[in-house]
Design a protein around this nucleic acid. Sequence first.
RNA 1: GGUCCCGUAGCUCAAUUGGAUAGAGCAACUGCCUUCUAAGCAGUAGGUUACACGUUCGAACCGUGUCGGGAUCACCA
Length: 629
Amino acid sequence: MAKPFLAFLRFSFISLYPEMKHLSNLFKESFYSVYKYTGTVEEFPVTFCSGEFNEDYTFVLFPWVKKLSLSPLQIGNELGEQLITGNKIKSYSIVKGFFNFSLTDEFWIQQNYLFNHDALEVRIKLNTEPKKYLIEYCSPNTNKPLHLGHIRNILLGWSIYKIFKSLGHQVETSQIVNDRGVAICKSMLAWLKYSNGLTPEQAGIKADHFVGEYYVLFETKFKEEYDAWQSGEIANQIFNQNNKEEDTRDSFFKKYKNEYFNKYSILGKEVRDMLLAWERNDPETISLWKKMNSWVYEGFDKTFQKLGVSFDHYYYESQTYLLGKDIVQSGLDNKVFYKMEDGSVWIDLEDIHLDKKIILRSDGTSVYITQDLGTARLRHQKHAADQYIYVVADEQEYHFKVLFEILKRLKEPYAQGLFHLAYGMVDLPEGKMKSREGTVVDADDLIGEVISEATKTAVERGEIAALTEAEQLSICSKIGMAALKYFILKVSAKKRMIFNPKESVDMQGHTGPYIVNAYVRIKSILRKSECKNKQVVPEQIAIEERNLIKQLLYYPDVLMDSAKTLDPSHLANYLYTLAKDFHKYYHDFRILKAETENLTQWRLLLCGNISRVLFHGMDCLGISMPERM
RNA sequence: GGUCCCGUAGCUCAAUUGGAUAGAGCAACUGCCUUCUAAGCAGUAGGUUACACGUUCGAACCGUGUCGGGAUCACCA
């Protein structure tokens, strides 16, 4: 079970928002006046009434049976009479231990009106104590283009950013770019050896893909070299001496690959030499490194732009990989760390089941976690945020547990505000994505596909044929992106998900375009009408309308829930439900040609409110919607 | 082996955090466009919530055990 992001909210199932809290208060007050029972509002949770009972909300009586030594029926009736007499509710019915009740028409009219104007944003921020957040997401390597895994990371990070911002927090985003190391050197070396100085522009290939191709080329050449080597004398000796597990020749050499790279490979030696040259600031190597990285960034920026995300701060591993040694020293001074005879530095976390962990190598160089200790401190010095959220796949859960624990033991002042949004990895229907087997889904390809699929559908329907080409393009790309983003964000962030490329381009059913369609339908109605934004008193209020308003009232709680669990999927699923309820309402009720003008105005008001919530919610998912489709 | 996560309809996912008869979408089948955009609506069919005990008014959810799947436990990043 994932720990709740804000632990103090864990047991608070009472809405913090006035309209919903009002309901709990009703019961709190009734319990006092009927039974002289005083309690906190948290003891009186109110939930939605199940659809089959035709009432608005439900209060569960079971817990009170023991406390009051009365039957559910008696409690329900006594409460019900009291509430009805006070004109607090319109009706109630008791089914088993459930007290189902409906609110008065006045309440719903008032709410539908109140939800109008800019009130939405104000209401959402009502319960926020503004804090400063820094959200780190994406963290790409610069040797190849972004893929599906990055997309999930990016969409989650961005959505969390939007959600916290809409709740009224001060939020900034950052990205740490893994711009150094063996991987980028492989791309560099391959380019140097085989490209004849070709540039992405000359090749007509998106620049990050261009660099990625040289990475692949390196791996191909390396494999050729390795395969040839395997039939040689040295390989034979190694196989005969070291194959203790009685593997086949193939599987033995598969495992031996890393060692070959480090010990025997010519290409491997060249790469390591290049890395050393980079580390001693060799001008030619640095300039090549800068050139190839700049190509990659140019490509990344285009992808970020298509995804509609941005970053406030960039950190580069090349500038941070030496950080953290001062922390190591202070950790030794405080006896949080200890030194082995060979000079390596360790921390013992076995008391909390986290093993012993190396902090500094025996040769004094840093490891992954050393850097992260250093960057954590650096970031706090620069940004002084209250909370730091790392959006990183759950395969690194252990790493972050260790990291956070170390920082706590070092008594770093920001240590309590560190969170790891550990999202699940993305699998394909065939299984894991493996770059070696070429099954990685490329980000740009995927984006291109969903947009072309959206365009195909739009052309078939012909609804937007009259618009200019630029407008059509904009609409189609919005719809395509809505499909892709929603497809990923609707599943719980913490769960591993299976990504079926075929289904990701679906435009019907539980999809982004379905929600966009609801919004577009409302916009179309609003274009054809005049909504006077007045508080009208309709002749009658349908249960469907009460239900829609009820959903709208619930929205701020959903946002808050997504924030506290760091999981936009709650919001995504809520928006689907709202859109679904609207689609049905739209089908069953005439809005422009309602029975009376009063009703038309009432319904227009409601539709406008729905469109505002849809827009706001989709915006919080990082999805922007067109006005027509 | 230690630690952590997961197991819900043929498939992909929900379930207002312990509530009522476990819901959607996809795939299959059937209806609805002279009516505010059919990327829609309505319907049929599909379930021993992996399994077994336990906790209580009530369990997919909490506890114990079993079985399956995954991640992680580097002087890699």
